[in-house]
Design a protein around this nucleic acid. Structure first.
Lengths: 114, 114
DNA sequence: TTTTTATATTTAGCATTGCTAAGTACATAA
DNA sequence: TTATGTACTTAGCAATGCTAAATATAAAAA
């Protein structure tokens, strides 16, 4: 019914969420999809066609670096994404922005958001 | 620097914020711009070219109705926007969606958002 | 009277990004 | 030999916030 709002509201935060998950250790695309879905309790259940373009963008901007590797016993090779120093700084700045904006929203929404 | 993220993060919430401000009483465009800016402490400082298309959309979707009126002593006529019953229901649903999504974000972000 | 200013609305066109949908590739299991 | 599960890629659409500029009017200033 209001699906278009859901889509729009997610804009701009995916980069931040992916950087967050990469803060601890390098991960590959499929893994990120699973973790986003689990950690957000199904709110961010992305299709591949949504996540991979995010990763390519992050790489272009220099926020992550990639490396192919095929762990033994695994079916196919995986492309691991590792956050860069630049990416860590971006994460700090972008999440600061999100704090600011979500505070602005809460101030307008008042009691309607708890 | 990260201005594009700011722009994207605001997507989808403007409709909700405008409906929230219209919940109490009918208001006109310029007034909404000022209130959004003040209430959000400068986070949502919209140009006219941003707000008016939002209002037209809300009208098309039947969430608001409009009426021109020129209060005495005022310079120009104003177009007042009044929320409809349908708009009130939409507000409830859209703000529910925002709660859900922002909760999802917080769950992934953990301590980075407080 | 004429010009300036403040108020208020409208519109055109761009950039970004989440989505659907489809396709590729390969190793293991049936 | 075929089917399945894992993993990555790409094309193209839809939605919306932004910049920029134009229009209109009445009150105030010159």
């Amino acid at each position: 019914m209001y699906g278009k709002y859901e889509q729009q509201m997610k804009k701009g935060v995916l980069d931040m969420l992916v950087l967050k998950l990469l803060e601890q250790e390098a991960k590959y695309g499929y893994q990120l999809i699973q973790e986003l879905k689990e950690n957000s309790r199904n709110v961010f259940a992305l299709k591949e066609g949504t996540l991979y373009p995010v990763l390519y963008r992050l790489e272009e901007e220099g926020f992550v670096e990639t490396e192919w590797s095929k762990p033994e016993g695994k079916r196919v090779a995986r492309k691991y994404y590792r956050i860069t120093e630049c990416g860590r700084q971006a994460f700090v700045d972008i999440s600061g922005l999100w704090k600011q904006i979500s505070m602005g929203i809460m101030q307008i929404m008042g009691g309607d958001i708890i």
